[in-house]
């Protein structure tokens, strides 16, 4: 097999997880897939920089993450406006998550600061070690650890608070509806 085919094969193997990462970060299929597409093109163009035998998944995740933040900087507050993003996610894509439970979790995840969200996803779902996550995010090991801890605490707070209101559908939909009308 040529090095080229090998590269493509390894990339394909990492794609389902790369998509899941993008989707967990962004919360919308269309935007997440656009980001994955941009990542594939970037990675393909940079394939000479990739050393076969090293961690393709971590390499792709790093490219995706850098691409996301550079796009966010370009678009200014469009994506960073988490309130608008939250409303939009709920308004157009509530069916993407099978159970109500996962929809609640998705909403909680959306409320985290981006640095905490990516840290807990990388370590808690993508299967990276703290060291690998620190390399992907370009920060110190201790920083990743504290981000993951803060993310866990925050998610616990959000989900417990929501839990008390679980029995009344109006209590969950009312603030969302009013928020949608305000914006």
């Amino acid at each position: 097999m040529s090095e080229n085919q090998e590269f493509k094969r390894e990339m394909l193997a990492a794609l389902p997880s790369l998509r899941a990462f993008a989707m967990s970060l962004i919360g919308r299929h269309d935007r997440a897939d656009d980001l994955v597409q941009d990542t594939i093109m970037k990675a393909w163009a940079k394939q000479d920089h990739f050393e076969m035998g090293t961690n393709m998944k971590a390499w792709l995740f790093t490219i995706l993450r850098n691409e996301l933040y550079s796009q966010m900087r370009k678009r200014g507050r469009e994506i960073q406006d988490s309130d608008g993003h939250f409303t939009e996610t709920l308004a157009h894509h509530p069916e993407q998550y099978g159970s109500l439970d996962l929809q609640d979790f998705r909403r909680a995840l959306d409320q985290l600061p981006p640095d905490q969200r990516e840290a807990i996803i990388l370590v808690g779902a993508s299967g990276f070690s703290y060291e690998e996550a620190a390399t992907i995010c370009g920060c110190a090991l201790g920083t990743i650890k504290s981000r993951v801890n803060r993310a866990r605490q925050r998610l616990q707070e959000i989900l417990q608070i929501k839990g008390e209101n679980d029995y009344g559908p109006d209590e969950t939909s009312a603030p969302i509806t009013s928020r949608a009308f305000v914006s």
Binding site: L12, L15, P16, S17, R19, A20, F21, M23, S24, D33, Y97, G98, D101, L102, F105, R106, L109, I120, I121, G124, A125, S126
Partner: peptide, 15 residues
Amino acid sequence: KLKALYLSVQEEGIP
């Protein structure tokens, strides 16, 4: 829950 959310996308395969 985080894993379930992640896997729900990962298991869709490659579009």
